[in-house]
Amino acid sequence: MESLDNKAILEAARIISGEVVLDKLVSKLMDIFITYAGAEHASFLIQEQQNLALVSFKHIEGKIEMYQQLKTVDESSHLSSAIIHYVVNSREAVVLNNATEEGPFIEDDYLQEVQAKSVLCLPIVHQDRLVAILYMENNKSSHVFTRERLNVLTLIASQASVSLVNAYLYAELEAKVKQRTDLLNDANQELTAVNQQLTNSKEKMKQMISNISHDLQSPVAVVQGYIGALLDGLVDDPVKQNEFLHTINYRMGSLSKLIKDLFDLSKLESGDMKFSMEAIPVDQLFDHFCQLFKLEIIQSGLQFKRRFNRDQAQEYPLLEVDVQRLEQVMANLISNAIKYATKELLKLV
């Protein structure tokens, strides 16, 4: 008999020594304890944040049940909570040979309800620390958990305590690794988002530079046209010459303001551009644009024609606009119209 017990202990040690995953370790321990103890069913409880929690239950005729949501002692319907609390406080094993007829727990409601016969509750301790509790019953036979069986189970429990502590440490390590991995994944996602924002910003910058180039080229070309006409002697009339010079001066002022605005790229990109709004009659605004772009249109080889149904008696509505910003828009429109014109006539209406 002693040889069989030693063989059982060695076999149990071999099975549990190499297992570090808590669920798998508990499952193997349950099989070992039920096999060598002669129990009808068993429950396994572990210390979870200084509280006992039921992690598994196994009936000899069924599969082991592993609880993903840990149950408290009082939530279990397969054990005596009074016996569990006693073992927690005393750190001593409880063995009942005929639970409902003898011993200190004969009045326990659970034991009376299930008519329990043989009961064993075994603490699993490692260096004075309670790491788990094994609770077993056999409600068909009394005196099942003999002293010999208790000795074997106690030795197996002693070996199991080391494996359980290692499994706890492994679970904590895995949790920390998962936490670090999640943090790294979050950081990687944030970095990816930042990189995407940088890519988008670069694309916006390219588009902005293209727009800036277009905005600068248009007034420069107009000014060059006016200056060229004056230098070539195409305008003899002093009044016209003065008109050209005023137009050049005005367009250079607009160009200077545009360059000033372009220095603050952050405002352009964020849309925080300030506007100087003023109320101006729509007919005066039309005359202003005709005067501003007439020479540019003519010098491009197109005919210039304006059409505005003017009524001297009519009071035209006021438009609230930023004239210089609107000039930039009109300059782009006129420039594109000249560039892509399919006829020899460009009308401003």
Rank of each mutant, 00 (worst) to 15 (best):
Ser218Ala: 13
Gln241His: 06
Ile209Gly: 01
Ala187Lys: 13
Leu231Glu: 10
Gln207Thr: 13
Asp186Thr: 12
Gln207His: 10
Pro238Ala: 06
Glu203Tyr: 15
Asn185Trp: 01
Gln207Val: 03
Gln197Lys: 15
Leu231Met: 11
His214Gly: 14
Gly233Ile: 08
Leu234Ile: 13
Asn200Val: 06
Asn188Arg: 10
Gln207Phe: 14
Asn188Met: 07
Ser213Trp: 00
Asn188Leu: 10
Asp215Cys: 08
Asp236Gly: 00
Ser210Thr: 15
Ala193Tyr: 09
Gly228Ile: 04
Val194Glu: 11
Ile227Glu: 08
Leu230Pro: 00
Asp237Tyr: 01
Glu203Ile: 11
Gly225Val: 00
Ser201Asn: 11
Ile212Phe: 15
Pro238Lys: 06
Asp186Asn: 08
Tyr226Arg: 03
Val239His: 07
Lys240Cys: 04
Leu183Lys: 08
Thr192Lys: 05
Lys202His: 04
Ala221Thr: 10
Asn188Pro: 00
Gly233Lys: 00
Thr199Ala: 13
Val194Thr: 10
Gly228Gln: 11
Gln189Met: 07
Ile209Asp: 09
Leu198Phe: 03
Val220Ser: 08
Asn185Phe: 05
Thr192Cys: 02
Asp237Asn: 15
Tyr226Gly: 00
Pro238Ile: 09
Ser218Gly: 04
Ala187Tyr: 06
Ile227Gln: 11
Ala187Pro: 02
Leu231Phe: 15
Asn195Ala: 08
Pro219Asp: 02
Leu183Gln: 13
Tyr226Pro: 00
Lys206Glu: 14
Met208Ser: 12
Asp232Asn: 09
Gln224Val: 10
Val220Trp: 00
Gly228Pro: 01
Val222Gln: 14
Leu234Asp: 07
Ile209Leu: 12
Asn195Tyr: 05
Gly233Val: 08
Asp236Gln: 11
Gln224Arg: 14
Leu184Arg: 06
Met208Cys: 04
Asn188Gly: 01
Leu216Gly: 02
Leu198Ile: 15
Gly225Gln: 03
Gln207Gly: 08
Ile212Asn: 02
